[in-house]
Design a binder for these strands. Sequence first.
DNA 1: TGAATTTACGCAAACGATACCGGGAATTAA
DNA 2: TTAATTCCCGGTATCGTTTGCGTAAATTCA
Lengths: 346, 346
Amino acid sequence: MKYEAITIKDIAKALGLSTSTVSRALRDSYEISSETKDRVLAYAKEMNYRPNPIALSLKEKRSSSIGVLVSEIANSFFSQAINGIESVAQEKGYNVIIAQSKEDFDREVSALHYLASRSVDGILISVSAGTSDFSTINDLYLRGMPLVSFDRVVDHLNMHKVKVDNYKGGYDATHHLIKNGYKKIACIASSAYLSISEERVAGYKDALIEKKMGVDENLIDYCLHSGLIYEEVEDIMNKLMMQKNKPDAILACSDKITTNIMRYCQDKKIKIPAKIGLLGFSNLDLTDLLTPSLSVVKQPAAEMGRIAAELLIKMIESKRPTTTFEEVILPTELFQRASSAKKAKP
Amino acid sequence: MKYEAITIKDIAKALGLSTSTVSRALRDSYEISSETKDRVLAYAKEMNYRPNPIALSLKEKRSSSIGVLVSEIANSFFSQAINGIESVAQEKGYNVIIAQSKEDFDREVSALHYLASRSVDGILISVSAGTSDFSTINDLYLRGMPLVSFDRVVDHLNMHKVKVDNYKGGYDATHHLIKNGYKKIACIASSAYLSISEERVAGYKDALIEKKMGVDENLIDYCLHSGLIYEEVEDIMNKLMMQKNKPDAILACSDKITTNIMRYCQDKKIKIPAKIGLLGFSNLDLTDLLTPSLSVVKQPAAEMGRIAAELLIKMIESKRPTTTFEEVILPTELFQRASSAKKAKP
DNA sequence: TGAATTTACGCAAACGATACCGGGAATTAA
DNA sequence: TTAATTCCCGGTATCGTTTGCGTAAATTCA
């Protein structure tokens, strides 16, 4: 069943004019008499005429829509980011088309191809945790597709980047744990492919080194799927808790990892923070209401989305190809709560 | 800056063929010799040819995209629903274009017009809490736009509906509270305009009446913005806690209302469930980890999204106009946890 | 009055792809 | 040898819109 709507041709036929006259009348061209304009406008309004955006897209070679590729929509960070993106897009007259990679490289590539085949004017991308090959993205860049990466940016590619200060986020979080008396701090990061993992871990390491605490590689681990699967976190936690140098605190570097650790500790009846301190990167709204209330590093998700969307639309609407790329770095925010409370002196 | 891509014309010119021949070769028509097909296919592959979806849309009068209108993307229920929608759409070759109304009627109308002007083949809609006038939706229906409403459905309009058994959800929740010894159960619902509010409240009332507990209208209140704004919930809670017939339990009928009540009780140091029991509709992942763990009525959000998307795509792809409309009703699930624990005998 | 402008509109091409129609060349049948 | 097929392929209209160009009619100017 089709949704049939009135076209410029219908108006032309009804009023005995040519399509060009109608088109110009609707665009208020100076070469159309005011009487004709009035007739056309009145009829168009009466028939509720709306220009066909697809025909316009074909003509103008632009679709007025932007693609957003994230790993998982049902993730508080990304849904907040999309919220920001949508608000900017709506304001500037762009559609937002969303796609999710589910942290899978193949799905990411096919989603990119799908979006890229000229159905969007630009793409906002946060790469999947499973992605180590960026040739598809680079191909798009080389072919002139406006791209902006956010959160999980790709360091060595030429494009605008919007991210948080992951190094400082990791550093501050670790520093806070140290200050609160934790001695053996483990770090569970997302996929090692991601620069955000690298940076957060670097901040973690430097905080330890600065306090002369030494870095134990056995206390550092990575989740290929960013903790999306519980078992992934479970395995790492089992390994960590079995080893001789057992941690007394954990820095979790993504939302799902953080909450899955909480779930693990609840299952295994490991008391937080008595047995183990916990501090995680998270954008969930309710972390303050959790048991125990969760210390988190929060990212300004909606703002990242807004800034990324603005950069992208600026690129799309620019006459000349963009040659210099910005890297916008926003601050993270540390919320100190019960899950990383000061450790009782032994 | 534009993203230039190869067209069928370029291939035709390069190989000394006509566009029609190239088109047929690409579609594997029988009237093209296998040599020509091979040449075309090889060249197309080499040049990474992809058909222009916009040109196709114009020709076929379909855009292969569906619009989704929700009140707020950064809401666990809707992001889970969108997740389900996206997975079905992706599978069937449709783009998903999202728009949010922010619970505002005007934004809803303009978003609908935006989506409707032939840039989508159909629309999935969950109406905003501020909507009492459904003429825009009805206009779209009359003009043949395929529409499916989900969650917040519109009762008196002709369209497929996918929802949960709100009545039973409200009834079961209230029954559970009664069974656990609560005597004065308040109910805070979303906008009174929404049928989900009406149905949940009806279930609540019937459960009370069945136990001969009587319905006190002073214990029932509505949030025009579905609890999106904290102050809205704060005002209602203040009113409830001030009045002489103070409730000893609350049934909260939406995600944001539930969590904002928890926040309120934490602020005001009102102990849950000692001072007041709490049970809410919610789709958050972490309700089991909250303090206290939160009793909830959960909706199968992703499944609702999937079913709604399937119904919509079936409608879009149907040759004849849809005349009979389905109403799919899914069960809710009640999770009994600490926030509504059995009341100690006084 | 005749020429030069201006006014107000129509024609047709273009965007990329598809499909109907038609036709030349090669093959087969008579 | 000629007519009838079959095989391949090209021309062109079409989708809805914009826009450069052309051109009658109306107006202005000399």
